[in-house]
Structures are given as C-alpha cells and as structure tokens.
Design a protein around this nucleic acid. Structure first.
Lengths: 110, 110
DNA sequence: CGCTTGATTAGAGGAATGTCAAATTAGACG
DNA sequence: CGTCTAATTTGACATTCCTCTAATCAAGCG
C-alpha cells in the first residue's frame, strides 16, 4: 500500500518548529504513541530476517486480529513499516529511514 | 511541580519491548505527539537562556491561555519540561535527559 | 485593601481514538 | 467449485483528548 513520505525535521532545540513541520511530525509521533504499536514495531524490527508475519504478531497480543490489523495499518500509513503478501501470509518489515528520522529530532547535535 | 522520572528504554530494534516499557514509552510519546506541544517544546528549548516565559509562548499561538497552560502541564507531567515562578511570570525550561531518551529509542546503535 | 495582569484550575462540548463483532477479500488445497 | 485459513474492512461503542468559557489563585501596585 501507499506509504507517506515525510522529510522533516531538524532537531527540536535547533530552533522553533514551523507550524507545518509540527503538524507533520505530530502525525508521525502519534503513530508510535501507543503501547501496542510500539511493541509491534519493535517485534518486527528485531525479528530475524528483518520481517515478521502477521500471524506471529497477532498471537503475541491479547487482542483480536482486526485490532492488530488496524494498528499495522496506522504504522504503514505513517511510513514506518511496509507489508508484502507471500502466498497465504503477509509479512511486514520496518522502514529504517522513518524510524531514524524520529531519532534525529530528539537527538541534540553536539 | 512534580516531574515523573522514567528510565526506560533500549532502542526499538534491539529486541521486543516489554509490555510495561511499551506503556511507559507510549505515555512519554503521547506527550509530544501534538503539534502545539511540539512547538512549545522547540520554542522553550531553543529560546535564549534556555528558558521561556509563558507570556511569550501564549502570544505565539492562536489559542487561549488556558489551552496553552494545559499543554504545558502535559509536558511537565511527562517530565519533559520544568517550570518556575519568578515574580509575576512563570518560566519553563526543557529537561534534556528526557528528550535525549526519546532520541536513543529511535536511534539504531551502530 | 482593592485593582490589574499573569497563569492555572474546573467543567463542558465536540472530535478523534482503540477495541470488538460481523462481514469481506485473498490464497491454498482437495 | 467448495471450503478452510489468513488478513483486512466496515460499523458501532466507549473512552480519551483538544479546546473553550468561567472561575480561581498569585503577585505587584496605587
């Protein structure tokens, strides 16, 4: 599916964030500001082979399959993960560039 | 006022996040997952002297004073900023340790 | 003391969000 | 084709969140 590409932003303490940058950044942060999505992201990112099957992810939570599917869609729409169907199962992998951008925002440059 | 202290967490891709760590981290991320609070944080952090008066912050937005006060409280409760009253005005400053922790979570260790 | 200005608290209304059950799509396999 | 499993979509409900108005607290000043 479509993955939104966001290029913003410099570190927070660099200077006042523009209104538009703040809106874009907030959208990205909202995608990760949820316990389930954080665990999904870390499970996918740390899974062997760099990808994880939805079936594995669903089993790890005490939540229904539609709920997990919903959270995966939020992460995917934010450009944090990407999914691919291979036969019966769907596999997700992390898009490291987007995750890295989150890091740079909160990392003060020396 | 009181500032919550959180010590978690290792980088996301290091390994699956524990449920408790995910809850703590999500709470911290929710505090910054808002355009107004992001701009407040960057305005305070980049302000000369490392601190900013509430009066300056309020003027920069098209929002009422109580709304700004609410957002400042959210940031303060999350341990991201700290406020101090000096005479007539209240000044806020960033707590860099908390911001830095956000950075480490999304920064892949080499 | 009474007034003015700065800032927070309290309460309410409307929008956004997380979850689930039910229905739907997509492949694999007899 | 029919059916079974995997995954997503749809629609509904309860909760949380953002914003405002009104009221309150704090400090300075005449």
């Amino acid at each position: 599916m479509t993955a939104v590409t966001i290029e913003c932003c410099p570190p927070l303490t660099r200077g006042p964030l523009s209104e538009q940058d703040a809106v874009d950044l907030a959208a990205l942060l909202k995608a990760v500001a949820d316990p389930v999505r954080l665990r999904l992201l870390s499970m996918i990112g740390s899974h062997e082979g760099g990808e994880a099957c939805v079936c594995d992810l669903t089993d790890a939570f005490d939540l229904t399959a539609p709920t997990i599917s919903h959270h995966l869609k939020v992460l995917r729409t934010a450009g944090l993960i990407d999914g691919e169907r291979r036969g019966t199962w769907v596999y997700y992998r992390v898009i490291p560039e987007t995750v890295a951008r989150l890091g740079t925002i909160f990392t003060p440059l020396a």
